[in-house]
Design a protein around this nucleic acid. Structure first.
Length: 592
RNA sequence: CGGGGUGUAGCGCAGCUUGGUUAGCGCGCCUGCUUUGGGAGCAGGAGGCCGGGAGUUCGAAUCUCCCCACCCCGACCA
């Protein structure tokens, strides 16, 4: 039994000044956590109870799915990460340190290498597969800017699983098993979530989905359809391809002298103001212009390749989407020196005439998927102060391919059902993806197949942010008064508030109720303090957020029909229950 | 890493512009008395390297420079 009179706890009347988001503010104010280091937190008894509950739910769901728990050190040697290239690829976000002899170590941000090596150590036969193993471990990332309390720390707890299968069908089955386990896991945690398509990015691999808890404080932007269930991370959004248009109806492409049109807006205005150039049926818009942006790609082997991207002039290039598309290469700005090396590019007037492998610049030219055959564009004429109008894709120019690099906007068309999509923000609480053989190959993991030949297993990787999920639950379940925990992870089932005089019946009644509830198997927090006034105790109970509050107050003083008030923290509904029925009532409430 | 803001008691803040008593207020904490259904009252008290360092000055919380930390925006980010 937890007693407020002795609990190691201090609640705060005021919000801490350094906490912005609700979860951070309330977890500190209600005495669950305290900041201990930049991006690191200490856990107080209430917080640690909640943490262990979240961890327990995660563990139970993993075990139920048939995955086995292992545990690795967080402090690891450099060599395995050197072998996979991540010692350098991970960049500044990796915590690196040295031992007294000067040997390099790291604090692991994830454990792909160690899992792979352990399987290599233990498994030699295809008969050992499929295998899914997991750990719940503290992870370290040297975040440039830790923020939002537990939502983004430099030290945090993650459950990471890895699956090992012989072939793609097996990997898909392991992936599906994790997906199903995550669904029941997040359901049990009482977290709202959406599953979005994602890019596997620098981790390599193919299929990938993120579990996002949709909320404004989230750092991930995703889109979801307003009518069907399509949802995707911005990086993974697919632009619907419009049908091709016949060339027959299109006019001839003509180059015009267009002085004083430095921006898309002025260009459009200029075209619309010329009676000759106006479309009879509608005005030209920024979306009719074809903007060509040139970047440099730095490939992992160090080579630099220029790349031109053509997209409708009303949209910007979304760097995140571009990076996801060109990974593992990294895009860099095309600077003045680069322009000097490519005299066929006229800055501000770059057009398809100069772009593409077959044209003057020889620069690879990829366009937005909306640029289909037969679409007519206003675009640069590769000559200062000149633009070309009615340049038709497929007739007047042929790009080298398409690329998903244009920004996504509210109201864009859903690739599945063509309804408008909306942009939302979410907290990434889980991520599952199919890694493939990148790590197995880099670390030389093979097993013998049924013919005695070496086979390289294919892997999946699956993460749940345990501490982050806890914070997300606090974000999703709080109100103006404080935290509101789902029962599954609350630090107790019932918070008993004793409100009465020392010599009255309340204190003994509170003690008895607490003992009876514990005997019935419920977890109890008893506010047995006498000093604080009832108001303080009510406020603390609301702040702490245990789902059911039982008030032992003036009701029990009624000698003929003593009652205890039972209050639901979430709804605020209160009900007077006869003293002799209250244990059964609370047990029923807490078990339902 | 760029831009902006803030560091004064456990928490929230004032004081700084214009340097000068013993650095102040509210909450919390300790002692005593009163009080107990919505953050109680009275009285007494403890608690500060004024983020750190270097300067300017007879004298620095206050002015100057450097550093550190925290918050916000951006960049970054399984």
């Amino acid at each position: 039994m937890l007693r407020m009179s002795t609990l190691f706890l201090r609640t705060l009347r005021d919000d801490p000044a350094d906490a912005e988001v609700a979860s951070h503010r309330l977890l500190v104010r209600a005495g669950y956590i305290r900041r201990a280091a930049p991006g690191g937190f200490s856990w107080l008894p209430l917080g640690w109870l909640v943490y262990r509950n979240v961890e327990r739910v995660v563990r139970e769901e993993m075990d139920a799915a048939g995955f086995q728990e292992v545990h690795f050190p967080a402090l690891l040697p450099r060599e395995p990460y050197e072998a996979t290239g991540r010692w350098t690829e991970y960049g500044d976000n990796l915590f690196r340190l040295q031992d007294r002899k000067g040997a390099d170590f790291l604090l692991a941000p994830t454990h792909e290498e160690m899992f792979t090596l352990l399987v290599k150590d233990i498994c030699g036969s295809y008969k050992d597969l499929p295998l899914s193993i997991y750990q719940i471990q503290t992870k370290y990332r040297d975040e440039a800017r830790p923020r939002a309390g537990l939502l983004r720390g430099r030290e945090f707890v993650m459950k990471d699983s890895y699956s090992f299968d012989l072939d793609d069908a097996g990997l898909q089955a392991s992936y599906d098993a994790h997906r199903a386990a995550y669904i029941s896991l997040f359901d049990r945690l009482g977290l709202p979530y959406v599953i979005v398509s994602a890019m596997s990015g620098a981790m390599g691999g193919s299929a990938s989905e993120e579990f996002l808890a949709p909320m404004d404080v989230g750092e991930d932007t995703f889109i979801r359809c307003t009518s069907c269930d399509y949802a995707a991370n911005v990086e993974a959004v697919v632009t619907p391809v419009p049908p091709a248009i016949s060339f027959d109806a299109q006019r001839e492409a003509i180059v015009h002298h267009t002085p004083g049109t430095p921006t898309i807006a002025t260009l459009v205005e200029w075209v619309n103001s010329d009676t000759e150039l106006r479309h009879p049926e509608r005005d030209w818009t920024a979306a009719d212009t074809l903007k060509n942006v040139v970047v440099k790609l730095r490939h992992p082997d160090g080579t630099i390749e220029p790349l031109a991207i053509g997209l409708p002039g009303d949209r910007e290039v979304d760097m995140k989407r571009l990076e996801a598309q060109v990974a593992p290469a990294e895009p860099e700005p095309f600077d003045e020196d680069d322009f000097a090396k490519h005299p066929s590019l006229v800055k501000g007037y770059i057009g398809p005439g100069a772009l593409g492998s077959d044209n003057a610049s020889g620069i690879r030219y990829l366009v937005d998927p909306r640029v289909v055959d037969g679409t007519a564009w206003i675009t640069g004429a590769d000559k200062r102060d000149h633009h070309v109008i009615d340049l038709v894709a497929g007739r007047d120019f042929t790009p080298d391919g398409t690329i998903e690099a244009a920004e996504i906007r509210d109201g864009d068309v859903c690739p599945v059902c063509a309804s408008p999509v909306e942009i939302a923000r979410g907290i990434e609480i889980g991520h599952i993806f199919q890694l493939g053989r990148k790590y197995a190959e880099a670390l030389d993991l093979t097993v013998q197949d049924e013919h005695g030949k070496p086979a390289t297993p294919t892997m999946g990787s699956y993460g749940v942010g345990v501490t982050r999920a806890l914070a997300a639950i606090a974000e999703a379940g709080h109100d103006d008064l404080g935290l509101v925990w789902p029962r599954e992870i609350a630090p107790a089932d019932v918070h008993i508030v004793v409100a009465g005089k020392l010599d009255g019946p309340q204190f003994p009644a509170g003690e008895r109720l607490a003992a009876d509830l514990e005997a019935a198997g419920l977890r109890v927090l008893l506010d047995d303090r006498y000093g604080p006034s009832p108001g303080v105790k009510f406020k603390d109970a609301e702040l702490i957020g245990i789902p059911t509050i039982a008030i032992v107050g003036r009701g029990v003083a009624d000698e003929t029909a003593p009652t205890i008030e039972v209050k639901d923290r979430r709804t605020g509904e209160r009900e007077d229950i006869a003293l002799d029925a209250v244990v059964a009532h609370l047990v029923a409430t807490c078990r339902s």
